[in-house]
Amino acid sequence: MIELSVDAQALQALGRRLRDEEDGKKLRRDLAKNLRAALEPAKDEVRSALMGMATAGLEVDGAPLRTTVLKGLKAEARLTGRKTGARLKIKKTPELRNFKNAPKRLNSKKGWRHRVFGQDVWVTQVGEREYFDRTIRTGQGRYRAAVRAAMAETARRITRKV
């Protein structure tokens, strides 16, 4: 798992300061919105990395695997609590075509083992190695700068009112 950290204490302090402001709710909402927007380029890059993954083109039991995995991709911003920060995450997929936790397995270096359809033979299959981790790691500096810029903009809005 890749964690992109920005000074969590500074973000928490900013969140506390927002609570004290007259229009703190609006400022908090705007900050959260700006933090999520700062991660949009990362979200787009992960989306393209996953959609660029090779596929056999089989559609079994409904939607394609990659499309289903991408439905769980979201940017999240938290201003309080233990998990303060902005993060990009993909929700687990529940038993999708007998494929538990597809986002994690598709990202795994090791791949996953499964039985060959209709036979008692097991094989190891490897997806697009680190489609999520590698994408985030390469753009980490840009994403961190965008999050800091969103924090700085909110801090400027607060100080202008003083």
Rank of each mutant, 00 (worst) to 15 (best):
Q125R: 08
P94A: 15
F132N: 07
I136N: 00
Y131G: 04
E130K: 14
V147E: 05
F99H: 13
A102D: 07
K100W: 12
K110S: 12
T135Q: 08
R115Y: 05
K110Y: 02
W112A: 05
R97M: 07
K92G: 05
W112Y: 11
R129P: 13
Q125E: 15
R144P: 09
R134I: 12
F99S: 10
P103E: 04
K91T: 11
T124R: 14
N107K: 02
Y143R: 10
P103R: 05
R148I: 13
N98P: 00
T93F: 02
R144S: 07
T135A: 08
E130I: 04
N101M: 11
K92S: 07
W122T: 11
R113K: 14
K91E: 13
N107D: 14
Y131S: 05
V121Q: 15
W122P: 00
I90Q: 08
R113F: 15
F117S: 05
A145W: 00
I90F: 10
P103S: 04
T124P: 01
K100Q: 08
F117T: 02
R137S: 13
N101Q: 05
G127Y: 03
Q125S: 13
G118C: 00
P103Y: 03
Q125H: 08
K91H: 08
E128A: 11
I90S: 06
N107Y: 07
Y143I: 06
Q140P: 00
R115V: 10
S108Q: 04
A146F: 03
H114I: 01
P103H: 05
D120T: 12
I90A: 07
K109T: 09
H114M: 12
W112F: 12
P94H: 15
R129W: 00
V147L: 07
E128T: 13
I136Q: 05
W122N: 13
E130M: 03
S108E: 06
K104S: 13
A145M: 02
F132T: 00
P94D: 15
W112I: 09
K92D: 12
R148M: 10
I136P: 04
R113H: 09
R137N: 12
A145N: 07
W122V: 11
T135E: 02
R134P: 01
D133L: 11
G139N: 08
L106G: 05
V121W: 13
A146S: 10
K109E: 14
A145K: 10
K91Y: 10
I90K: 06
L96C: 06
I90E: 02
K91V: 04
L106I: 08
V123L: 05
G127T: 08
P94V: 14
L96Y: 10
N98E: 15
T124Q: 15
L106R: 09
P94Q: 15
L96E: 06
R129V: 08
Q125Y: 02
Q125G: 14
R144C: 10
K110E: 03
E130W: 01
R148H: 04
H114S: 12
I136Y: 06
T138G: 11
Y131E: 14
G111N: 09
G111S: 08
G127C: 02
K100L: 12
R97H: 10
E128P: 09
R129I: 14
N98T: 13
A102C: 11
Q125C: 00
A146I: 08
Y131K: 02
N98Y: 11
I90D: 07
E95V: 07
E128C: 01
G118D: 07
V121D: 12
R113N: 15
